[in-house]
Amino acid sequence: MIRLTRVFYVIGFILFVGLFTAAVVYAFKMNEVSKKNNSGIIPSYKYHFVLVPEEMDNDYWRLVEKGAKDAAKKHHVLLEYKGPKQSNIDEHLKELKIAGASRVDGILTQGYNDQQFSPVIDSLENKGIPVITVDTDAPSSNRRAYIGSDNYYSGFIAGKALLEDTKGKVNVAIITGSFQASHQQLRVQGFKDAIRREKRVKIIAIEESKITRIRAAEKANKILTEHPETNAFFGTSALDGIGIAQTVVHLNRQNSMYIIAFDTIEDTINDMKKGIINATVMQEPYEMGYHSVEMMVTIEEGKRVPEINYTDTRVIHRSDLPIATIEQQKRSPS
C-alpha cells in the first residue's frame, strides 16, 4: 500500500516535471516566433539615390542596375531602381516627379527625349535634387552630368562595320527603338553618316519597335514583305536584333542576310553564336551604372564632375566571343 502510494507520487511528480518543462519549452518557442516578427534593423545609409531606367525588366538596364548597386554598396548609398514596367515616357516622367516629391538625394535617369525630359529635370534641379543622365543624355536640360555611350559614335561604328563586312549592293533596313528617344535618333544618325558616302549601300526603310521584341519581329516582317530586296538589318536598341533574327529565321533568309544588332544581351550573343546575327555594338552598362553612382556621390560631397562622360563602345563579331574574355581584355590594363 505504502509502496503503491510512493509509486503514485513518483509518477505524478515526473509527469508534473515533464509537463511543466514542455510548457516552458513551448512558451519559449512562442516568444521566439514573436521576436522574429519584430526583428530587423533598418539599415543606415548616407545618401538616397533613385535610378530610373526606361524599362524595368530589361537585361541591358539590369546590368546598369548591377553596376549602380555595386557602387551604392561601396559608398553606403541607398539605391532605388524604379521605372516603367514597359517603356513609356509618361510613366518615366512620373517616376522622376515622384522621386522629386520623395525628396531623394539624387536621381540617375535615362535622358530619352530632350523636349519632354528637360522641363522635368530642370524642375528637379530647381528643388535642389541633382540629376545625372545615364545611357541617354538630355543635353538641353540643367542636368549635372551625362554618363553613357556616345550614341552618335556607336551608330557610326555600326555603319563602319557594315561597310567592312559587306560587299556589293546592300539594301539596309533600320529598326529603331523609338523615333522620339534621342539616343536612338543619334544612333540612326551616326549610322546614316557612316554609310552616306558609299553608293552601294542604301537605306531602304526605318521602323520603330517601341523596344519590344515582338514589335521588332513584326516590323522586320513588314519590311521584308514590302521590300523583299532587303539584305541587311540594323537594330538600334537591345531587343531589335533578336526580333529581326526571329523573323529572318522564320522566313528562312538567314544565309543571305546581314544583321548588326545593339548591346550584348544573352539572346543576342546566342544568335551570334548561331551565326544569325553577324555583329553587335557593345556598350558598357555596368560601367555606366557604377560610375553614375560614384559621380553622384562626388556631387553630393560638393565637388564638381565633368559634364560629359563617354563610356566605351565597340563592334564585336562572332570571333570575339565569349563576352567574358572581351571584358577581361578591356579591364586588365585599367
Binding site: 507520487y9 505524478g12 511528480f13 509527469l15 508534473f16 509537463l19 511543466f20 514542455a22 510548457a23 513551448y26 512558451a27 518557442k29 512562442m30 516566433v33 514573436s34
Partner: peptide, 23 residues
Amino acid sequence: KRNYYYRLTAVLFLSAVFILCTI
C-alpha cells in the same frame, strides 16, 4: 503558429498545475 504554441503551452501548464495540485 504562435497561437498553436500558445494553446499547447496553456494546456501543458494547466495540466502540470492540475497534477501538482492533485499530488
